[in-house]
Amino acid sequence: MTLIRNNLIIALVIPIIALAGLVAHKVYKINVGQEYILPILGFDPRDLLSGHYLIYRIDYGVSGLCSGMKYNQEKPAYVCLSPRSFSELKPQHCTAMISGHCRGSRFNAGIERFFVPQADARTLERAVRGRKGSIVLAVNRSGKALIKDLLIEDQPWRDYLSTLEQIESKQ
């Protein structure tokens, strides 16, 4: 009886610890990574589990990104942020890089979506389409990047929406 109870408790604790570990891992990566701000362009689809998100292209300021027929099939690629360059091999003299892969003509690094509240999805989408958006990234040494925040007109998106609401209420 005690053994069954203990097994049940262990089975219940496993997912809680795993989920907490996942959160801790993300928090660690965000805090340790070097911060970069890059401009974006995008639109708004939705995810079954997590709701609405903006999907965008990041303007890395690099020429020849994933260009050519060889990227019809997915291939690993790297963008060096300092100095700015693109390569298929891990760059040697690069102080900060983002690792990802080319599929077609797109470079994907797993940072191309930003979840937004359903009520504000349209407003933010319009702002991003109007080239007012940029993304704050935390990039670690191995090239893995995580999103820290979305900026609209150089201010956090929450502040931007609040300012917009204040202007609308005054009018």
Binding site: K26, G51, F115
Partner: peptide, 18 residues
């Protein structure tokens, strides 16, 4: 637990697949 994975993905804006 499944919904929590969705929430973590939302809070940290991870680009993972379903």
């Amino acid at each position: 637990c499944l919904a929590s994975i969705g929430l973590i993905s939302q809070v940290f804006h991870t680009g993972g697949e379903l």
